[in-house]
Design a protein around this nucleic acid. Structure first.
Lengths: 139, 139
DNA sequence: CAGAATCCGAAAAGATACTG
DNA sequence: CAGTATCTTTTCGGATTCTG
């Protein structure tokens, strides 16, 4: 395998960059970073992951309420994608009226951890970002 | 302030979730997570950050070449956004022909670290994601 | 309740041609 | 070299209507 060991990655993650870029240019196999970023970058995926992470298991409408301003269609689309990628499980209880429960898989929980790290960083960095934006809007 | 201390965040990042969601629903002030995700989620921002992170300082066309398949227009747009947010600096040398150098700011290096963590995770998680996708394309 | 299906407008991104 | 300007294509996401 071309992958360095975990020790190396933690100490020197830059070493993986050429691999990342190699894959990024490869049209046949998707670049993992692009791929994952693209999946979580839509308007609702991360929010869904965060909601499920904080609340555990949620029904469709509970999740919709938790997120707040997502449309029915987009929540459905988002959940289908997350399910396809293995981040959430969808359990249908064949009752009348039907009940559907969503919960994070282990893979989804891993993504949640990444999202939380990113969220924390974003929270801390925001003032600086806002400050920088002000400079450029003035110009 | 409503922000928990650093110790808490590291130990229990979930505690920040309600704050994140509170901001996410607030239309007047942007949610930091959404905001940052939205900025880095476009097709080229992260790749630009990673390229500058691995190579240090790059000229426009060097960066374009490094990324590979980005159009001139999109790289320009991307770099303007990254500059506005304070992630990269743009230095114009008034020569003929003109020379422009891009490099990461400290804030940009912080984002790079986050990106590298995410990239590593994505690399590791990819096989599982691909496997999951196969199941659903068959159905 | 939890969706599927359709339609439409807005936004993102690519191709191309031109310029200081 | 490092863009800008313009046009076209593609993708995203919301509103609405219908259903097991």
């Amino acid at each position: 395998m071309e992958v360095t060991n975990t020790e190396d990655k933690k100490l020197n993650p830059e070493k993986n960059l050429h691999l990342i870029f190699a894959r990024a240019r490869n049209q046949e196999l998707a670049c993992p970073v692009r791929d994952v970023i693209h999946r979580i970058s839509d308007k609702w995926s991360l929010l869904s992951i965060l909601a499920l992470g904080s609340r555990g298991t949620l029904r469709f409408n509970e999740l919709k309420k938790e997120i707040g301003d997502v449309s029915q269609r987009m929540l459905t689309v988002t959940l289908r994608n997350l399910e396809t990628d293995g981040f959430v499980t969808r359990t249908l209880f064949p009752e009348v009226p039907p009940r559907v429960e969503y919960t994070l898989t282990d893979l989804g929980k891993g993504l949640l951890q990444q999202a939380l790290l990113l969220a924390d960083w974003a929270n801390d960095a925001l003032p600086e970002i806002v400050e920088s934006r002000k400079k450029f809007t003035k110009k």
